[in-house]
């Protein structure tokens, strides 16, 4: 059985819950209170992940940290379609990886502003916000041209990839860090598409979409 060390309000943990749900993988969750108790920085959890970061996934003997690494593992191991992480196609695989790295930058900026405003972490919220806006401009432009080429997803995949899952949570939660998405219409349409992927589940702060046409 897969065990996810999870905090419900964490966007990084949400990525893993999303993919587990979309791939229909049975698992159990072990709640670690990130805030206010900071259990992820206590001895018991540091024994599992010395970096003191969530999420952590255990699958048999394997213990994995880092949300992007976990997405890569789950898609490679359990996705029989091969679409979520296209191992067979180096060019597409590279674009997926490129957007996985971009997702980390979104976590650091948009996610950081949310930590500062909502959970009182000592981060420079204004600096996080301006960096997030810079990234959102890049992504909105990219998605606008993707739409023109009938591409629905961030990487050049015909169906959603783990890059979409990795980028989604902290974009969707950006308003909690005071980052409005009004200037990013292509991003807003893409978040609707992600919400309509079969198996999508919400998290507190994220509403589900209505049915598509």
């Amino acid at each position: 059985m897969i065990t996810l060390y999870d905090y419900e309000l964490s966007g990084n943990c949400y990525k893993i819950r999303l993919l587990l749900s979309m791939l229909g993988i049975r698992h159990e969750k072990h709640a670690i209170e990130f805030y206010p108790a900071a259990e992820h920085r206590k001895e018991a959890f540091l024994a599992i992940n010395p970096l003191g970061e969530l999420p952590v996934l255990q699958d048999g003997e394997l213990t994995l940290r880092d949300s992007q690494a976990i997405l890569v593992y789950l898609a490679s191991e359990y996705d029989t379609s091969g679409n979520w992480y296209p191992l067979q196609d180096p060019r597409t695989l590279a674009t997926v990886t490129q957007w996985l790295c971009f997702a980390n930058a979104i976590t650091a900026s948009a996610g950081g502003a949310r930590l500062a405003d909502g959970f009182f972490h000592p981060l420079d919220a204004d600096a996080c916000r301006s960096e997030a806006h810079r990234l959102f401009r890049v992504l909105d432009e990219h998605l606008w041209f993707q739409e023109r080429e009938r591409q629905d997803w961030v990487a050049t995949t015909a169906s959603p990839s783990i890059a979409d899952i990795a980028c989604f949570p902290y974009i969707m939660l950006s308003e909690e860090g005071g980052i409005s998405r009004i200037d990013y219409p292509a991003i807003r349409r893409w978040t609707d598409r992600v919400k309509r992927i079969p198996g999508f589940i919400p998290m507190p702060g994220v509403f589900p979409a209505g049915p598509g046409l």
């Binding site: 419900e8 309000l9 709640a31 209170e33 805030y35 108790a37 909502g118 308003e175 909690e176 507190p204 702060g205 994220v206 509403f207």
Partner: peptide, 13 residues
Amino acid sequence: RLFQQTIFSQDKP
């Protein structure tokens, strides 16, 4: 605590 945090975070948006 986790139950209340869920409820509060759902109201937030």
